[in-house]
């Protein structure tokens, strides 16, 4: 136990030192390996949208609000991408029980997102996601500028508003 406490102190002191600096030092995507729907391994640190904003949304087949959110955005996704150039990456945290269902469901619903499979929750943990849906907004430099948990009708308007702010260089609250 004593050892653990020493270790804790060590990590905490590093944390505190760095916390002071972190204001202008925004977090970027961690390096985790996930799969895409065509079976390729993807390093999450390399996800990008060519200098344009990117949305990363964690979801699962068993999560109704998540499906609701992605269905709602799917209806306006063409307009969003045309207007702002934004890209949505939908990260499914379904485990081995349902990973094979993700592609048929996504295509069956006609979603045009880039879909990733995080079957053992490695990416989810690295992003500190507790509950889903959990949505992150990244700026063109790949820095996480905003995040939001849960979905209710109309939340998508706040999200696209943030994207517009990013594009016009306004600060994100």
């Amino acid at each position: 136990m004593k050892n653990v406490i020493t270790l804790l102190l060590l990590i905490f002191s590093i944390s505190i030192l760095s916390a002071q600096e972190s204001d202008k030092n925004l977090r970027q995507l961690p390096q985790v390996t996930v799969k895409n729907l065509s079976g390729h391994n993807i390093n999450t640190a390399e996800l990008s949208n060519d200098g344009k904003p990117m949305i990363i949304s964690f979801w699962a087949l068993w999560c109704k609000p998540c499906i609701n959110e992605l269905t709602t955005i799917a209806d306006v996704y063409d307009e969003w991408t045309e207007e702002t150039g934004v890209k949505l990456v939908a990260v499914s945290i379904d485990d081995a029980r349902s990973t094979a269902k993700v592609a048929p469901t996504v295509n069956g619903k006609g979603w045009e997102y880039e879909v990733l499979l995080d079957a053992n929750g490695d990416f989810k943990r690295a992003m500190n996601v507790n509950m889903i849906p959990h949505t992150f907004l990244l700026n063109g430099q790949g820095e996480i500028v905003w995040q939001h948990t849960s979905f209710s009708e109309g939340s998508e308007l706040e999200l696209i508003e943030m994207v517009r702010k990013l594009n016009s260089g306004l600060p994100i609250e």
Partner: peptide, 13 residues
């Protein structure tokens, strides 16, 4: 064993 096929608007498993 799992086999699936999908295209836009249709998926099966």
């Amino acid at each position: 064993l799992q086999a699936s096929y999908s295209q836009k608007g249709f998926g099966m498993l």
